[in-house]
């Protein structure tokens, strides 16, 4: 089966979405012809060409203000009928990651993507919400704090390869929430210091 993964992170290489997409691709590639593209790097023609005759499209993106990042949203809005024409019978799967610990906060972005499928005549496969997406930089997927994510990606990959649909799933790190929040706060202060800001300046208004 031909599978296309479209990453919707505007950061490109090194982003949490990119790493999740790579981890999913490694689970799919032995059994499928798998191509990875980027909504912010590849143009519409390149993405549409990759989708021709494709059996599964996997969208992997970060949560932006409770929804889909605008550049990916634009791509989906402008290609909604063309995708169904290029790949009749395509099934869409979706992985959304956010900066908050709670993976369930990605549920609305999955719902928006499911609505995209309904409006485009595409089949919805399954969604996966990933909490504390940035923690993917802390450990290998499937190990330590990323154990739950590894299991969720294993199950998603199995469904994709079988062409099956499934209930949306949600994965959070095997790590204490309070500690994650504490580290996140320290990280924001540290990044601000690197840009020459004092702690109080981070909170200033305009």
């Amino acid at each position: 089966m031909k599978i296309v993964i479209v990453s919707g992170s505007p950061k490109g290489q090194g982003s949490a979405s990119e790493k999740i997409a790579a981890a999913l691709q490694s689970r799919l590639a032995p059994a499928a012809d798998c191509a990875a593209l980027h909504a912010a790097k590849h143009n519409r023609e390149e993405i549409m060409a990759a989708l021709a005759g494709c059996g599964a499209l996997i969208l992997v993106f970060p949560l932006y203000v409770d929804g889909i990042p605008s550049h990916l949203l634009r791509l989906l809005d402008e290609t909604r009928s063309a995708i169904a024409d290029a790949a009749p019978g395509l099934t869409v799967y979706c992985v959304v990651n956010n900066g908050f610990f709670e993976a369930r906060q990605n549920a609305l972005a999955l719902e928006l993507t499911r609505n995209f499928c309904d409006s485009s005549g595409l089949k919805w496969g399954q969604g996966l919400g990933v909490g504390a997406g940035g923690m993917i930089h802390a450990a290998r997927v499937g190990h330590g704090p990323m154990k739950n994510l590894g299991k969720a990606l294993d199950a998603l990959a199995e469904n994709i390869l079988r062409g099956q649909t499934g209930e949306d799933r949600f994965a959070e790190p095997n790590f204490p929430k309070f500690l994650y929040n504490m580290i996140a706060h320290m990280s924001w202060r540290s990044q601000a210091r690197k840009h020459g800001l004092k702690a109080g300046e981070l909170r200033r208004g305009l």
């Binding site: 932006y64 949203l73 634009r74 989906l76 809005d77 906060q105 928006l112 609505n115």
Partner: peptide, 30 residues
Amino acid sequence: FGGLSPDVKAVLDRSIGFVLPFFRALNAET
């Protein structure tokens, strides 16, 4: 798709500086 149009969303995505990066708990959510 049940949300803002891409043009409006682009402005809102660029406006998260309206809040701080720090977390607080509301309704048992971050």
